[in-house]
Design a protein around this nucleic acid. Sequence first.
DNA 1: CTGAAAGCGCTAACAT
DNA 2: ATGTTAGCGCTTTCAG
Lengths: 347, 347
Amino acid sequence: MSVTIKDVAKLANVAPSTVSRVISNSPRISEKTKRKVRKVMDELNYHPNLNARSLANSSTKSIGVVLSPTVNTSFQNPFFAEVIRGITSYINQKDYSLYFITGKNEEEIAQLVNKTVKGGRVDGIILLYSKENDPIIQYLNSHNYPFVLVGKPYSHLEEITYIDNDNYSASREVTNYLLSLGHKNIAFVGGEKNLLVTKERLRGYEDALKLNGLRIIDEFSIFTSFTREGGMNAVEQLLSINHEPTAIVVTDDILALGVISALKNKGFSVPEDISVVSFNNALIAELASPPLTSVDINIYQLGYEAAKNIIYKVEEPDGSEKSIIVPYKLIIRDTCSINNVRKLIES
Amino acid sequence: MSVTIKDVAKLANVAPSTVSRVISNSPRISEKTKRKVRKVMDELNYHPNLNARSLANSSTKSIGVVLSPTVNTSFQNPFFAEVIRGITSYINQKDYSLYFITGKNEEEIAQLVNKTVKGGRVDGIILLYSKENDPIIQYLNSHNYPFVLVGKPYSHLEEITYIDNDNYSASREVTNYLLSLGHKNIAFVGGEKNLLVTKERLRGYEDALKLNGLRIIDEFSIFTSFTREGGMNAVEQLLSINHEPTAIVVTDDILALGVISALKNKGFSVPEDISVVSFNNALIAELASPPLTSVDINIYQLGYEAAKNIIYKVEEPDGSEKSIIVPYKLIIRDTCSINNVRKLIES
DNA sequence: CTGAAAGCGCTAACAT
DNA sequence: ATGTTAGCGCTTTCAG
């Protein structure tokens, strides 16, 4: 039904193998016959059957992208759209394609990954999340299957290739920024505590305080879900203690939106009463009112580098791939201000 | 290297074809041997080579999703993330996989589609945009290749299966809502004029006005790009005419955010001075402040139905698939208010 | 520089 | 109910 390599061969008066060699642009074919064959391919609008190709040389030229089980919430988060934009950009350029792998829960995803890997559907995998004790990472790692992680692995740091920001430093820098504005009572609102990003950013926040001779107050660190509601709940908790903060480090823009909205409801204005810094610098950070001061973590580049890395790994199995740290940048907008003097004196 | 059907056959003491039949759960195999074979498959952790499978029965069990060339901007728009969530949900359930097709420009995408289709990488395609005179639609349609469109096709309405809202009615309803609040000077801000959504929503808006005996003022309809800046520019244009509106119908949430922000800059408050309704009800509509009154177009369901349709089409080529209209719902939040009397009298 | 032929892993007649 | 066998469309030795 479809036009095959044989049809081209016949019309061009060569053997199928010659056509195959022309497709892969083998140097052992004369320019003349290459031209001849290419002309016929054009005429017939021939395109190689990719399945046959993959079968014959066990390489699919496609990469699988695995999304976290909590697609429901996370997909709403612009982070994912942006990483994928970065990924496709590189992938297209290298003539690879993208497979999407996701599911309702961890189990379903694990099954799909197994099926996809064993089934030879893809040549490598990009993992878009990083979790404590993740079975999929363990699976891929133990099978020695090419994959890269966007985020930092929980263990086997040396064995696993990952693409990440220096979240510890970013968080320290952000906290120092608040300190430089005169804040002393700084709280921290992060996502789920078993996520590595959360841990790293918490560490940066705490070290910044310590190194400035400030005490760490346990009640000032709240961990919640990565949603607007999460942010609102965090504020409830923060305000239920007698000692209220004048600034908050929040690890995600949407979370920050929740925080700010809850603060408003409670009669606090941002940044006049309480300053807020967040992370990710998603589109909404810019669109929000007031626009959020947020750490731009270069999501696009995170994706781009992940794609670059996995393709390198696939094409050079013996290459020395190394993990990559993507730079971040604090974007100052309108949610932080100098701590007002009255409060400074009180504390 | 990998475990194949032959390994399983040998260990289970049956012929390869028997194993193949067990995989496809053929009724012509006894329960006893099925159990025996399945046990061996489990032991060996066997998974069929999907490329070989696809080659042998020319069916890939995967669906391609084509994203608009303007991924840059559109992918930022939560619409796409949400459709894809709907699509994957159904697709996984039917044991299909998802291929991503996108590119820098129309040409690149067209090439990728051609390669993917001719290469037999997918069994069907979902198009996530609908444009006037789109070459890809024409290509797929003329090749009689199974595809569905999310959005309304520009022509060949009868031949093409599409999943869409009734944008005309939604827009009429929204405009009527503003009329019922006492507004008479209602403007319209839409995306690019050659998009069908824009046309349909414009038609609904105009008909609502006409049927209420109001005149249509040309300067009150602005067409711009689907971005925040687009919305801001639209306001510039609207306010440059002497006759200013008391309400605006905006065809997208992000666009609306731009409109509202520009209005604020000009000293108008929303909804006190000017009411705004928008479409799509993306997450940001809820997060914005003030939260947007917006038409929920059920983006998730749009994706879900698209997946359902394309798989049906692929599996029953002679089935009578029909286009589907997904219901919408006006979600009233805080950006519309009753037209204040002073202005009513003035006009 | 090009051709002939075997084989990638699976399916689907056709046989029994 | 199960085995035999011939492909699916391409790549890749091996010959020449």
